[in-house]
Nucleic acid binder design. Structure first.
Length: 585
RNA sequence: GUGCCCGUAGCUCAGGUGGAUAGAGCAUCGGCCUUCUAAGCCGAGGGUCGCAGGUUCGAGUCCUGCCGGGCACGCCA
């Protein structure tokens, strides 16, 4: 609808070219907007105000000329000049009739578009270290990333979802050694647990699996393990201690033994993450391993590209990337003095690989604390000859949990944090996804468990679902009364929907494609949430104002066609959010 | 200190790439269930859009400076 009006407007402006207008405004500048006030029609444009100066014309006069030049269209009932020079469009009832017919014809596909033109987009999200369970912050990133990917898919992008597994590096070694120490405990040894180890209960089952798999094969005495190790915190340095412990572990059980422990721990953690996310309705097309990336030579490849571009230099024994030449605030080390490649090196290699896999747009969904990293990676991409603007980072602000007014403290490394799994178990997946998506992602989120759980009208989750269920209930009632719904007759009689509430519902319904597109362009799933709430609101108001199942068969069919259209759009929107659309509540 | 995000009703937040009289939920107050689900609807009150300038026909929205809050600034990952 909106696009059609914009097309008409451009046509009108074209006829004025050379007379009133020196030249046509650029393609994207001729826009039509929804009005706020129903008295101003459904759509309005301010082009006349914008073009008045260049045309050296009074805005109202220019607007009048544009209106006069406007081709006629079955969509438009009336066009008027208003205010300082706005052009208001009042839609013909037929415009709504055809849009409602489109909703019924397209069904689950209604609202989809080809805006993205099949462009390949990679959305990387969550990518939490596989060293512990997902917490509530990851949950927000999961809900956001999954929904954004759904929305982009709906508007015609070829989207793939990816989880980057940080399975190389020291954190994994720490997970492995933590597992081994718990394993030794199972074997009957008594030794202190490292301060900097992973102290969570989830490590114990990993150790039990290790015991089942390896038997006593990796069992070494506590004395052998601890002999000559530096002091752990608080007396000593916990970092130095755990590094020494890792080294000792490798000495005692061998590189192969250590790898066995690490691989077992990693495999089980990943299986757990995958299950957790899948239960949450969050699925990935790719799980890309940092370790595999290194083994494939991708990091060396990226460094070779940088070297070839002359962007590397050796300084104080380390290899540096001159990132400042590409907008980063400081140069970055890619290979440390000890010869080990940095995390940054594998990161730019990973992003280069994404580009080389053929993705035109890379969307990284990151925790807000990662914002410093974006300029760095972008600098790397540009230096390696990739378009820097292909990388787009969406930063997700933090989540604070509340139980009513009481804030739940969230220890970071301590075992006391609330996991995503616990949260889902307590409030349910629907409320969880909805609450995560309710607020703008760049706004910190206060997540109230009590509110999310409550089955009262204070809880916004049910409001939308209830509207959907109510429609289903009406159809059940129809059947119970032995009546039948005739869609064709309903669509043929949309003109009979003259009540103010019916007009409001029709108007709200037809906005769905516009909101979907807006949510996609701006990467803002929450605007879709707000739209669905508004649609539900117009529906509930209508429900309270009129009976749908009336004697007059054609009016009844028209009304039912309308409310079934509402149910369809609610269902489509909720599906994108990952929230169910129940038929009874 | 430097960089990023933010500041809108008592509370929690929207505000469509600069448009017409700034909106919603909760909370408060007052109404609506013998009639398709009251997890609903209708109405009322509630605002110096942090402050001060600037850009223009027009600013909550864009620019600058201040005030206040959150986060980040490793040869960690």
């Amino acid at each position: 609808m909106k696009q059609e009006l914009e097309r008409l407007l451009v046509a009108a402006l074209k006829t004025l070219e050379g007379s009133l207008l020196a030249e046509l405004p650029p393609a994207g500048a001729v826009t039509v907007e929804r009005t706020r006030d129903a008295g101003h029609g459904e759509f309005a444009t301010s082009v006349a105000l914008r073009l008045a100066k260049a045309a050296r014309k009074n805005p109202r006069e220019l607007a009048a000329a544009i209106v006069k030049a406007l081709p006629s269209s079955p969509l438009i009932e009336r066009t008027e000049v208003a205010g300082a020079g706005f052009i208001n469009f009042h839609l013909a009832r037929a415009a709504y009739a055809s849009e409602l017919a489109a909703i019924h014809a397209q069904g689950d596909a209604y609202g989809e578009s080809r805006m993205g033109a099949g462009e390949r987009v990679l959305v990387e999200f969550v990518s939490a270290n596989p060293t512990g369970p997902l917490h509530v912050g990851h949950g927000r990133q999961a809900a956001y990333g999954a929904t954004l990917a759904n929305i982009l898919t709906a508007v015609g992008y070829a989207v793939e979802r990816e989880y980057y597994i940080n399975d190389a590096g020291r954190q994994m070694d720490i997970l492995a050694v933590s597992t081994w120490v718990r394993y030794l405990e199972i074997c009957g040894e008594t030794l202190p647990f490292p301060e900097n180890g992973y102290r969570g209960e989830y490590v114990r089952p990993l150790a039990a699996k290790l015991r089942a798999e390896a038997g006593q094969g990796l069992h070494r005495s506590a004395a052998a393990v601890l002999e000559g190790l530096p002091a752990d915190a608080p007396a000593g340095d916990k970092e130095a201690y755990i590094d020494a412990l890792i080294t000792r572990c490798r000495e005692l059980i061998g590189v192969d033994g250590f790898r066995q422990v690490l691989n077992l721990a990693l495999a089980h953690m990943l299986a757990d993450l995958r299950e957790d996310l899948a239960e949450f309705g969050v699925l990935f097309d790719h799980w890309t391993s940092e370790r595999a990336l290194g083994e494939s030579g991708a990091i060396d490849h990226a460094l070779a590209v940088l070297e070839q571009q002359g962007r590397l230099e050796r300084r104080e024994g380390a290899l540096w990337f001159r990132a400042t030449e590409f907008g980063d605030e400081k140069d970055r080390v890619v290979v440390r003095e000890n010869g080990v490649k940095t995390y940054f090196a594998s990161d730019i290699a990973y992003h280069l690989a994404k580009c080389e896999r053929g993705f035109k747009r890379l969307i990284d969904v990151l925790g807000a604390d990662h914002h410093g990293y974006v300029a760095r990676v972008r600098a790397g991409l540009i230096a390696m000859g990739q378009p820097g603007d292909c990388l787009e980072a969406t930063l997700i602000q933090f989540v604070s949990l509340f139980r009513g007014a009481e804030k739940i403290p969230m220890g970071k490394r301590e075992a006391q944090f609330v996991t995503l799994r616990q949260l889902r178990a307590e409030v349910g997946n629907d409320a969880c996804r909805f609450f995560y998506l309710m607020r703008s992602h760049d706004q910190p989120l206060d997540f109230d468990l009590e509110l999310a759980k409550s089955r009262t009208n204070e809880n916004p989750v049910y409001y939308i679902q209830y509207a959907h269920a109510r429609v289903a209930s009406v159809m059940k009632q129809l059947a119970a009364r032995g009546l039948h719904f005739d869609l064709e007759a309903g669509l043929a009689n949309v003109a009979r929907l003259t009540e103010a509430q019916e007009q409001a519902v029709l108007s709200s319904l037809t906005r769905y494609p516009e909101f979907l597109e807006q949510a996609a362009v701006n990467r803002t799933p929450h605007t879709l949430v707000h739209y669905l709430r508004e649609l539900a609101n117009t529906f509930h108001t209508y429900y309270n104002a009129s009976a749908f199942i009336v004697e007059d068969a054609t009016l009844r069919d028209a009304r039912l066609a309308l409310v079934l259209g509402v149910a369809q759009v609610l269902k489509n929107g909720l599906r994108l959010l990952g929230v169910s659309a129940p038929t009874s509540m």
